[in-house]
């Protein structure tokens, strides 16, 4: 291209091969735009979530039979009581997050037909893993369940 003659009226001004100033200006603009874009991309990722605490307090009814699930209103957790203590199993299906319903001998998911035993293990369907067990602690006469904290299956609060 540099060999092209200046005499052509249509191509009288070949771009100088080393236009440091122009390139620096372009790169500076590009860099600031890229940096600004990075800053903007941070905005949609909220620093704090407007969701309430995952911990909640619940009192078990006196009449709750051993091995029967108790689901506190508005929560996706089933609490069980047996001889060894109290434990909580999440009722959020591990497949795609539907809330499983209590069935005759465990839980059934209404969305894609997964079925679980009472201890959360998968019996049938597309669910890839067992329903997680959640941390339970005692506070006075009530129990505190932390939906955000998964514990090993079989962990009970004596």
């Amino acid at each position: 291209m540099t060999t092209m003659s200046k005499s052509s009226r249509l191509d009288p001004e070949p771009m100088p091969r080393r236009d440091f100033l122009g390139l620096a200006a372009m790169w500076a603009m590009g860099a600031s735009a890229a940096f600004a874009l990075l800053g903007m991309l941070r905005l949609p990722r909220a620093a704090v979530l407007p969701a309430p605490s995952k911990k909640f307090k619940v009192a078990l009814p006196e009449s709750l039979a051993d091995g029967e699930p108790f689901v506190p209103a508005g929560r996706s957790v089933a609490l069980f009581k047996d001889k060894e203590g109290v434990y909580a199993v999440s009722t959020v299906c591990t497949h795609l997050g539907c809330i499983v319903k209590q069935s005759a001998d465990g839980f059934a998911c209404p969305c894609h037909g997964s079925e679980f035993n009472k201890d959360g293990t998968v019996k049938k369907g597309p669910a890839p893993k067992a329903l997680p067990w959640l941390a339970v602690t005692k506070d006075g006469g009530a129990f505190v369940v932390d939906e955000g904290k998964v514990v090993d299956p079989g962990t009970r609060l004596a």
């Binding site: 800053g39 903007m40 941070r42 905005l43 990722r45 909220a46 620093a47 704090v48």
Partner: peptide, 9 residues
């Protein structure tokens, strides 16, 4: 107060 870069933007 809490949105990242929110105040600046």
């Amino acid at each position: 107060f809490v949105v990242p870069t929110g105040r600046f933007i």
